[in-house]
Design a protein around this nucleic acid. Structure first.
Lengths: 210, 210
DNA sequence: TATTTTTTTAATCATTTGATTAAAATGTTT
DNA sequence: AAACATTTTAATCAAATGATTAAAAAAATA
């Protein structure tokens, strides 16, 4: 099998299957997604799916890893940049997340759901990729805390930063009903949060009485 | 069929099935849960499940409604109490949520997942139950905002309050890995948040320059 | 106790679903 | 064009799964 020679065609079909799979898996989760639906969505024969990916599970794992990388990459990316101040990093991250998830609204809940109760090699494996960025961020935070410039445990920092940014997307159905908000208003609120969340985080980090 | 006479026995088996269903549905979601597994977990014959509940879907709907009520009730409950100040209400709510979800950690993600893309009569129907409490809370908030005592839109308020409280549970797998936290430490952090979150919310509500 | 009603079970259906197979279609190389 | 390799399809399998049925067991009633 000469991979290179058939690359063009192969990539095309393979990609169409993957995109269909990404759409359905992300929307409905692993268990609720039928391989037949993926095939239909991709406009190909069911057997082709197995020809390219062997099994539903294998296809899913690929999608899962890519999705997860997409989400986490946004976070770690900005933290490598030595030029930026912590405040800049936070602002960039929040903005990037809001933009990205606005375009992929089902992604966060999908990742969180499928990770739930899945000790899985995936989680562990992916986690390692982000080890460096994470440790750097935490060093900065702990350093800053030690100097007395801030007072917020890394755990709370991460929980608050991610929570305030992506939770509204996750809880969107309930949230919109609860607050009787239209889709446009929701979008507007999320734009507001682009500046609000960094401001709130700043407040939370400030040491008491300073 | 004389309902009342057989109540005792009926309730017992019915309840066992419901509890098994609640456990599995909440853990793995609708699609991934097999009726056979529910039957096994309940220690009954598969046919009995259909005898009592007609179908998987009907059983699920019952569980879903109860779960959702359990979650939402915590919120609305405290908001009816006219005696409490807004600060008290917030503190009580956060505390109650943290306690409750600590005991039912899978519940939030389950509810959010299954509500996703489910326009379903359930969502609408349940929502109505909480209408009164909600409108009252919002009146209070808007009143307070108008008076200049606070400055936080109801949408942001709800998103932040719920987000800061329950998001850590939802993202627990990722969060614990990211911050390299043991189960004990996680529990401890959540206890810290019992006082931290109300404090943060207070800060967020404060009008600028006041 | 006999009869009727309610609860429970074993066996079985009919679909759905993930996967395979054998062959056809398409593309590539010589 | 012939021979070979790759891609795609239709048909089919086997297992899983939600649901039903007919009959047994247990409980309630007369």
């Amino acid at each position: 099998m000469s991979k290179t020679k058939i690359k063009a065609k192969e990539a095309s079909t393979e990609e169409r299957i993957k995109e269909a799979a990404r759409k359905l898996f992300t929307q409905k989760g692993f268990a609720a997604t039928r391989t037949r639906d993926i095939a239909d969505e991709a406009g190909i024969n069911l057997a082709l799916l197995n020809y390219y990916f062997r099994s539903k599970q294998k296809l899913f794992d690929i999608i899962m890893i890519e999705n997860f990388r997409g989400l986490m990459g946004l976070m770690t990316g900005h933290f490598r940049d030595e030029q930026l101040t912590m405040e800049d990093k936070i602002a960039k991250m929040v903005g990037t997340y809001i933009d990205f998830i606005s375009k992929n609204p089902d992604l966060p809940l999908f990742v969180l759901s499928e990770l739930q109760g899945n000790p899985s090699a995936i989680a562990a494996r992916i986690n390692q990729e982000f080890m460096p960025a994470r440790t750097q961020l935490f060093k900065e935070l702990q350093e800053s805390n030690r100097e007395g410039k801030t007072a917020l445990e890394p755990f709370h920092f991460v929980a608050n930063l991610i929570g305030l940014t992506i939770f509204p997307f996750i809880a969107r159905p309930i949230l919109q009903r609860t607050t009787q908000t239209t889709d446009e208003q929701f979008a507007a609120f999320m734009q507001e949060r682009r500046t609000l969340v960094p401001m709130w985080i700043r407040m939370m980090m400030k040491p008491p009485g300073k």
